[in-house]
Amino acid sequence: MTEPAAHVVLSGVSKHFGHRDGTPMAALTGVDLTIATGEFVAILGPSGCGKTTLLRLLDGLLQPDTGSICVGGAPPRPGPETGLVFQSFRLIPWANVRDNIDFALTSSGLSLSERAEKVDEAIALVGLQRFASAYPGELSGGMKQRVALARALASEPQLLLMDEPFASLDAQSRELMQTELMALWARRRPTVVFVTHSVEEAILLADRVVLMAPRPGRVIESLPVDLPRPRWGYDVHGHPSFIALRRHLSERLRELVLTDPGSDFFQRGAPRS
């Protein structure tokens, strides 16, 4: 098997933000990360580890202070080549499902009829044909996130960035959306960078889990997930690889939170037996 081509390459990336007292705060330091074309990578870490900053950098919404980022051989810039899915959906409340998805295609250079076709395709992809003219206020959380997913996928991006997309959903919707996402990924095979703080979600979805530590945000571990795909139709959570990975990652996360002076649980953990 040949080495797959690198799609995303970060080398020595750091990003600082001005703090209230004037001292710059490091959101990310020295991040080196290579993601292959078509790979599904989960970025796992406690709050404050710069996961969201990383996604904004990958989308080109932010520029790194030092280091370089290459997406498909060029510095990233926001646009239809990259899809971004937010935790809070960010749907336009006064636009129906169809117009919300269409909004992502305004810069695609397509004609109106081509755009309409793409919108129809995206709506069919997430199974929302019956709700094409519904307003976001009329949809449940899971359906809203499906609209947001359809919007991100409508331009057929090669790179899909997801910022804790299912964190605000109830447990059942989350599980269904995870399966839906895996099925979509299997069909379209974009490169996915999926930010989450859930160990289970990271292992379930990804080819590789990248663990980040907070303050300053940095990558501390990168672990391949060798669970057979498709990961539905069998007990993934009971698979020995899943259990071993979950134990390891949970331990590491716990450690990170308890030793982070900036966290609410600093030195608060129950003593180990």
Binding site: D59, P78, R90, I92
Partner: peptide
Amino acid sequence: RDLLEMAQSVRAG
């Protein structure tokens, strides 16, 4: 602001 960032991310003019 969130919608504006969304618009920026899809490069809407």
